[in-house]
């Protein structure tokens, strides 16, 4: 096949549409939240276990200036409302035991350092665990309360409040030892071309980040900013909610939120961002 037949048209298009695509690359900018939390949103190299990725960009760089500014100040970040609700939930007793999170764990700042390590292998359960699973284990096993829905309002608020304790710390999930088999499963899912459109995560977020699909400026699909306030949804959304939306848009049958497939994918995608700062709750389109 002759690729050079395309070359002429690409060059011509670059001339004609130059102005339109000038913003196609990730924007160079620096994120400091509240004037004090310095975020690592770019690394010039990526982890060597991700051979297809040569650099790391937080999704923050792919958004417009106004959106980027919203995340730089908690008073402007619409995701902070839910995060504050999560802080209140931390102190609220629930279930037959009449206990709150704080009764066992103390202040929520005791959760600092947790977000960067999740998902991780849970020895006692013999399973890979996301933050949502730890929260629900506490609720059902220690508090005598009902499990929350994976992407329900209370769960997203709680994961935002816990995540926030680690803002600015580098993502650092383990991919070796007992986590390795889950990581490999996640990697396989990442590169599988699902649905009638036959698109893998990599097709858009590895091969085409910086390009546009209609008005969508494709990012690297990093998840260090989750839960993320999506302006489109006017709500904080969970990682698995976003995975589901992406796979649905390939005209595929998605996996369920909380499914072993999505937890494995979460580990793999998190590992692609190892070294980027925890930003959640971030602000995106």
């Amino acid at each position: 096949m002759n690729y050079s037949r395309f070359a002429g048209s690409v060059a011509a298009a670059a001339l004609v549409f130059g102005a339109m695509t000038a913003g196609a690359e990730p924007v160079e900018d620096t994120l400091v939240v509240n004037g004090e939390i310095e975020m690592t949103t770019y690394n010039e190299s990526a982890p060597d276990y991700i051979p297809g990725l040569y650099e790391q960009w937080s999704g923050w760089h792919f958004r417009e200036g106004e959106t980027r500014a919203m995340q730089a100040d908690d008073f402007d970040n619409p995701g902070m409302l839910a995060a504050e609700a999560g802080l209140a939930l931390w102190e609220t007793a629930d279930g037959t035991e009449g206990k709150s999170c704080a009764d066992c764990h103390g202040g929520i700042d005791s959760m600092a350092g947790l977000r960067p390590t999740l998902p991780k292998y849970n020895e006692a359960k013999g399973e890979l665990y996301s933050m949502e699973m730890y929260v629900n284990d506490c609720r059902t096993e220690r508090m005598g309360a009902d499990a929350w829905k994976w992407s329900g309002g209370d769960m997203v608020a709680m994961t935002a409040a816990i995540t926030m304790q680690s803002r600015g710390m580098p993502m650092n999930v383990a991919i070796d030892g007992p986590a390795e088999e889950f990581w490999k499963k996640g990697e396989e899912i990442y590169y599988t071309r699902y649905g009638q459109l036959e698109l893998s995560c990599a097709n858009c977020h590895e091969d085409n980040y910086g390009n546009y699909i209609r008005a969508d400026h494709l990012s690297q699909g990093q998840i260090n900013g989750f839960p993320t306030y999506r302006l489109k949804n006017a709500a904080l959304v969970s990682i698995h909610n976003r995975f589901r939306g992406c796979i649905r848009d390939t005209r595929a049958e998605t996996f369920a939120e909380g499914s072993p497939e999505f937890v494995a994918l979460e580990l793999y995608v998190a590992s692609r961002g190892n070294g980027l700062s925890v930003e959640g709750p971030a602000v995106r389109n």
Partner: peptide, 12 residues
């Protein structure tokens, strides 16, 4: 196809 969906519903 792998896991073809029913249009853009996310269902099989």
């Amino acid at each position: 196809f792998i896991r073809p969906g029913d249009g853009y519903t996310g269902k099989a």
